[in-house]
Amino acid sequence: MLNIALPKGRLGEKVYDMFEKAGFPCPSIKENNRKLIFENEEADVRYFWVKPSDVAIYVERGAADIGVAGKDILLEYGPDIYELLDLNIGKCRMCVAGPKDFHDDKRRTLVVATKFSKTAQAYYSSIGRDIDIIHLNGSIEIAPILGLSDVIVDIVETGTTLKQNDLAVLETIFPISARLIANKSSFKFKTPQMEHIIKELSKQIRED
């Protein structure tokens, strides 16, 4: 049986539709309930909803054979997995954002608030800028407004939240999209199913 970890939310629903079209249907997943695991014995598939940032862990540790995770999560946590396809959905970008009129005073350490500490560290180290990181778990945008940090490193989709809080994108670090990932060991023992999924999803990506 193929175990698939889906990220909870709109992106996960879209991804499920792609898997269904690829020949792995599980109608019970569309029922309106609070179940987290859904199985279709006939199609030999089991889906489960997990927090988007946890998908890579489920896949790396083999609880899921495959899953869909954002490139932001893969770069932040560096799981030992296969990154098989760029699904070209869930597109956004990792950015440095701050007050619209922000001027970086290079004589002092830059204070950065973020959920993505490793990403922020790697980016600023690549440009040789000394920083202090404040790790936050949510509402990152208010950090510069309250003077907690100079800037933030976060995901920007439309930029609406930034605008409404008088912030602006100062730099784009890298583009983000959803990726099909697989456990390295599962790939060896469930190769035909994996190859079938890659082929079918690639077809759908090309058609879009």
Binding site: E60, R61, G62, D80, N183, K184, S185, S186, K188, F189
Partner: peptide, 9 residues
């Protein structure tokens, strides 16, 4: 080398 049931090499 990989063994079924173990997630990594």
């Amino acid at each position: 080398g990989f063994v079924q049931g173990v997630p990594g090499s």
